[in-house]
Amino acid sequence: MEKYYDNKKLQLFFGLLIGVSFGFLLHRGGVTKYDVIVGQLLLSDFTVIKIIFTAIIVTMSGIGLFYRKGLIKVETKSGSLKNSIIGGLLFGVGFGLLGYCPGTIAGAIGNGYIDAMTGGFIGIVLGTGIYAFIHPSLVKKKIVTNDKYSEYNLFNEYKGNILVVILPILLSLMGVLYIIELLGL
């Protein structure tokens, strides 16, 4: 498939195609709705975790299959534990207050939700723009950093060894989902 990666128009079309399918599924999953997302954060509705964990199980297993054949490259994000924790907690505050995240807000807009189209959308664009202008000084002051985990992932570390890498995580995720079902959540 690599020969298609540089075909710009085709890739724009692929982006749209994947996006339409993703948006369709987000709506059918119920996660274009504030009540479902905040229900998860209040630990009363476990829809979000069920969707995310199942998506991880399928994606990770698929990568495991394709990785060794060289069909999929595993390239992960740069950054540091510090960035993930500070940025992640800031994100969490916004997640709880807005009740959508950058992907699901696009779905909420498609669902017709006006708080998502107005305040939420404007807020995220503003926030990412603000970050672009504070990023240089955050780097200079070593608040935003790169550490040894930058671009690090267990796939490349263990060369896609399924038994070592995937199986324990797969079983843990399935175990959590099983417990959620057992508790009737």
Binding site: G94, F95, P102, V125, L126, G127, T128
Partner: peptide
């Protein structure tokens, strides 16, 4: 909330 999400 959106601003926090964007920055975070």
């Amino acid at each position: 909330g959106g601003i926090f999400l964007g920055v975070g």
